[in-house]
Design a binder for these strands. Structure first.
Lengths: 212, 212
DNA sequence: ACCGTAACTTAACGCCGTTACGGAAAGGAC
DNA sequence: GTCCTTTCCGTAACGGCGTTAAGTTACGGT
């Protein structure tokens, strides 16, 4: 109520406009080729206006990625209901792969680029350790379940190591594909299929010998 | 012989000086933070002098990487002598991991960054398809051997897919580590150990059930 | 002695992210 | 209604970047 609210609502609207304009550029061209001046031009403000709503360029794109990564977290909540932890691991790999391949620039910025001075993700709504929103915590939770099920070989009992192995397997396929799919040096197989095959092979290698 | 040779030798010397100066900066700071002006300052030439020896900045750093990656190719030649293709695959993974971790900036530029317009690697001495210098061809050669040995499960017979799975496994671990090891969100396990564990798990998953 | 050419420098262009600063407009206080 | 403060935004500019254009110097060939 009152003009005070309207002002802050308008401010939020501009913030969204900035993010939308930035998203268009970012998806099409990637981080480096997004420019404060280009964003400003699209929303018909001066470049410096953006700085009244975001501290710097990285913050704009990070806010963008945080938002979009929530769609992945949503999918995780469905996967959480799968009873079998091994199957859960397989499915989370599938969802992760699909997301990465459909948001390559998001993925590149978040997981393929060392961002030296980024410690605070404050305000992004992702609270560390909460499996609802923290994907790594979610992965650790699955792995813990898998270990507890007793179906893994006895030498695999380090939760972090297993989580990082699983993460690395899918990350390896998608990141290699994102970085090098335009390189005709290699006859690329479909990343989705390669990822599935690698996950399956890894999982079979993690499991105790079965009688099938 | 004569002054004509001396001139071209001096030219080659300057080229090396450029590469050495660039290497120092690149190893310490990464591609983005290497600057033509900084390179020039180190070798006590003007920035534009570099353009007389390299077409642009990327060419400088690429020449650098091509040079340094040859040390990896050297190691591959020793590994080529291992009789067992499975063990050969394991060892090439180890060497690859070690190289990536000791040259993170090289690795990032070569395999973690999409370089839109780079088709020609001409003059770098790496001839496509020759396992002696082309690491991917080397990997395919090992995988072909592994298939021929009959020890893999029958469903694994696509050489490129298998090569890409293997590459992705090690790449996943090292690239994730390079990009995110400073991120204390995750309790990182040693990349070397994680890579070894993932390779072992994958290989066990690829092999036919053994009687051991 | 002359000339052409190769090597190199100086100056500048057009970008970039970001900051300093000034002005305008809107809300609250009286 | 008037004044003031706060918020919002634009203009201009800084320092940096990769790269290019144009000018200069020095040297080998003839």
């Amino acid at each position: 109520m009152g003009p005070r609210d309207r002002r802050s609502r308008e401010k939020e609207e501009l913030k969204d406009k900035i993010l939308d304009a930035a998203r268009e550029l970012f998806v099409a061209e990637g981080y480096e080729r997004v420019t404060m001046r280009k964003i400003a031009e699209r929303i018909e403000y001066s470049p410096t206006a953006i700085y009244l709503h975001f501290p710097d360029k990285l913050a704009v794109i990070r806010a963008l990625c945080d938002l979009d990564f929530m769609t992945l977290a949503k999918q995780f909540q469905k996967i959480a209901k799968i009873a079998d932890p091994i199957e859960r691991l397989r499915q989370v790999g599938r969802a992760y792969t699909a997301f990465a391949l459909s948001h390559p620039n998001h993925y590149q910025l978040m997981f393929m680029t060392p961002l030296a001075g980024v410690d605070k993700s404050a305000g992004s709504g992702v609270e560390r350790g909460n499996p609802e929103v923290d994907a790594y915590a979610f992965l650790k939770w699955i792995v813990t379940d898998a270990i507890a099920s007793g179906r893994l070989r006895p030498e695999y009992k380090d939760v972090d190591e297993l989580a990082q192995m699983s993460w690395a397997a899918v990350h390896g396929v998608v990141s290699l594909y994102i970085a090098k799919c335009d390189d005709d040096w290699v006859e690329w197989r479909p990343a989705k299929k390669t990822a599935a095959a690698l996950i399956d092979a890894m999982l079979r290698g993690l499991l105790r010998e079965s009688k099938t």
